[in-house]
Design a protein around this nucleic acid. Structure first.
Length: 397
DNA sequence: TCTGGGGTCCTAGGACCC
DNA sequence: TCTGGGGTCCTAGGACCC
């Protein structure tokens, strides 16, 4: 398994593999007659319900349908679209097959980011050819098309993929970063959303180039000593280049539910919270780690969302304790408005030895490693990036 | 137009202890 | 009598991503 002596010209690369219109593509595999028609996957497939689009096929996107859009709106924009309910197990299975293909690529280290995307670290002198071989292998094994972004950091690889879509490959490195990204708004960066982009704009930083040249002291004053410099680095495309295949371990499990009619009756609310707590306990029992903190999420009508948390005296698997805690948190809000959504989340006791899996910007917030001073996994611009393959433990398969 | 469900991480500030 | 820093734990709230 040990590779032969490295080729002198070979360099480490980060590839980002992203499946094209994943949910829609999986549905087309089992409903071939839907190929080429506008297709929307979301909720329970009922456009009258409170739900959003999970994936729209490219044909549906031509009508302005986007993921995250309310189904009602999507159907208004594209009345002829075929609407399908989300079918989690089927996508899980397809996703697992894709990830297996990636892990089978010679020399690849695979860090899964979600159902339909992963980073692949590889040392090669021809990353484009490697990317094309990934596309071919995935297509052959699963009948699914994907796009591949190639970068010298994770942020650049991740962003590159969008330029490769669909069914393509795009290379984004420090050599063409500003040419490609410099004039784009900061919100185009992975990890910068609407709020941060607005706060940046308030300081005059509107484009990626503005942010790249931003005054560090200003960023620190606005976002803190950790996040401030982190955003500056994002503007330069600088981030970790380490691909780590350590399996992800959940920190918490939660269940939430949007009610088709708002809840007002206290008994009804208590029952709803208990139902959610019972489902959460099923999930954390599967993990084998008890709940140490209970989070309550509430969305009051018309649209106000808030969260509360409480640490438990003793970690527990007891659904009634979790439900009671959540109801106490709800009562403490002293808010009588009708409830649209309830969520109960259980943060689990960490596993023995703590969490060792990677935390990337794509899952959750900004990476603790990338933002922190320790770790040293952040590539220094403009020094060369590197992919640490040796530090990854044996793939568990 | 009317906004799901599953996650993770960061910052600020108070309480408390040494 | 008035006062220091540092550390840890906890809650509240904000933000981002798929």
């Amino acid at each position: 398994m040990a590779p032969a002596s490295p080729v002198a010209a070979a360099a480490p690369w980060v590839l980002h593999v992203d499946l094209d219109q994943f949910l829609a593509a999986v549905e087309i595999l089992r409903h071939p007659e839907l190929a080429g028609v506008p297709l929307i996957v979301g909720g329970r497939g009922d456009p009258t319900e409170r739900a959003v689009v999970s994936t729209a096929s490219y044909e549906a996107r031509e009508f302005g349908v986007r993921s995250g859009m309310p189904l009602k709106v999507a159907v208004r924009r594209c009345p002829q679209a075929v609407l399908l309910p989300v079918d989690f197990p089927v996508y899980e299975e397809a996703s697992a097959r894709v990830m297996e293909v990636l892990r089978g690529m010679p020399g690849a280290v695979v860090e899964v980011l979600g159902w339909d995307e992963a980073f692949v670290g590889v040392t090669t002198d021809d990353p484009v050819a490697f990317a094309q071989s990934i596309r071919s292998a995935v297509l052959e094994a699963t009948d699914l098309h994907c796009s591949v972004g190639i970068g010298d950091t994770k942020v650049r690889a991740k962003i590159a993929t969008d330029f490769g879509k669909p069914r393509g490959v795009f290379v984004l490195t420090r050599d063409n970063w500003f040419e490609v990204m410099g004039d784009r708004p900061t919100i185009a960066l992975w990890g910068v959303g609407s709020k941060i982009s607005q706060r940046l704009a308030a300081h005059g930083y509107r484009t990626v180039r503005d942010l790249a040249q931003a005054d560090d002291a200003t960023l620190v004053a606005e976002f803190g000593p950790s996040m401030g410099p982190h955003y500056g680095r994002l503007g330069r495309g600088v981030s970790s280049a380490t691909v780590d295949d350590t399996p992800w371990v959940a920190r918490a499990h939660g269940r939430e539910m949007t009610y088709q009619t708002n809840l007002v009756d206290p008994d009804e609310i208590a029952t709803a919270v208990r139902t959610l707590a019972a489902q959460v306990v099923e999930d954390i029992r599967r993990e084998g780690r008890p709940c140490q903190r209970v989070f309550l999420k509430v969305r009051f009508a018309p649209f106000f969302t808030t969260n509360r948390v409480r640490k438990l005296g003793e970690p527990t698997f007891d659904a009634e304790v979790i439900a009671t805690t959540a109801l106490e948190l709800l009562a403490a809000l002293q808010d009588e408005r009708p409830i649209r959504l309830l969520g109960v989340r259980a943060e689990m006791v960490p596993p023995e030895g703590g969490y060792v899996d990677p935390r990337t910007t794509g899952r959750g917030g900004p990476s603790a490693r990338a933002a922190g001073t320790g770790g040293g996994t952040e590539a220094q611009d403009p020094t060369s990036p590197h992919v640490t393959e040796a530090q990854a433990p044996a793939s568990p398969e």
